[in-house]
Design a protein around this nucleic acid. Structure first.
Length: 255
DNA sequence: GCCCTTGTTACGCC
DNA sequence: AGGCGTAACAAGGG
């Protein structure tokens, strides 16, 4: 599923359109917050921005935000930078195209079987927390500001108002790496543990970014499904729900 | 045909 | 007031 790392891959792919003028745009109305996306026709793509899981095409007068939900994929000129998503179908059908933006030289499509993608004109990103990649140097401060929160550590890390970009799989990887149990109250973390956490967020994000996405970690989709012994200490892995999300952790080394 | 999956939002509770 | 948990939503796949 597209978390921040996948959004970064999509954003990078979308830079192909920079400098080109939009000649047509087709959108599934059920995926668009505004029905006036036609005003983008004739505008030149100036830039591509990303914050957390959100990507925006910056055009002459307006910005178009692309949000990918659980199964949205970007396809540029019929090439998908991410071939298949976890939990997504293996094949792609034309009727799942929710957005098609055409320029003089190429097209960008968002294909999303479950139709959870959203396309928003001139989005407001002010409620998003710091970006999980580019604001890594602020993580210590950000986590310190959460120190009174009684919610589960995992819930706080999933909260896009705190850190934007971490999704279910990345958070599990981070907590596994940091040795912290996902359902502990955030307020129970010591200063040292908060430092550990921010260090491991940066490290895991960097490592999985280099490896190609949220699904390339220790707790890969295969591991999440079959629950083999913990690769760190051999203890059985556990599967629980935290914040309504499937959570995989090792009850031996995550405390 | 039921139930699983995720990110976000809405809502009820304390 | 505001933090927290939970459910609802969408829809394809097992």
């Amino acid at each position: 599923m597209p978390e921040g790392l996948e959004a970064a891959i999509y954003a990078d792919a979308a830079t192909e359109l920079v400098g080109h003028v939009v000649s047509s745009i087709e959108v599934d109305d059920r995926c668009a917050d505004s029905k006036e996306l036609a005003i983008l026709v004739g505008q030149r793509v100036q830039n591509v921005r990303r914050h957390g899981k959100r990507v925006a095409l910056v055009l002459d007068d307006d910005q178009l935000e692309l949000f990918f939900g659980m199964t949205g994929r970007v396809i540029i000129n019929d090439v998908a930078p991410i071939g298949a998503l976890e939990y997504g179908p293996s094949s792609e059908r034309p009727e799942w195209d929710r957005l098609k933006l055409t320029t003089d030289v190429g097209s960008l499509r968002v294909n999303d079987p479950r139709r959870w993608a959203r396309f928003t004109l001139n989005p407001d990103w002010s409620t998003l927390g710091v970006d999980f990649i580019s604001d890594a140097h602020q993580l210590d401060d950000v986590l310190d500001r959460q120190q009174r929160r009684t919610a589960a550590v995992k819930s706080v890390l999933l909260d896009q108002r705190v850190i934007a970009g971490l999704g279910n799989m990345l958070v599990d990887e981070v907590l596994f790496s940091a040795g912290i149990e996902p359902c502990r109250a955030f307020a129970s973390l010591s200063v040292d543990e908060r430092r550990q956490l921010s260090t491991h967020i940066s490290a895991v994000v960097t490592r999985l970014g280099e490896r190609g996405g949220s699904h390339t970690g220790v707790l890969s989709p295969e591991v999440r499904g079959s629950l083999p012994a913990c690769p760190v200490d051999g203890a059985p892995l556990s599967r629980v729900k935290v914040s309504g999300r499937t959570t995989i952790f090792c009850s031996l080394h995550q405390r």
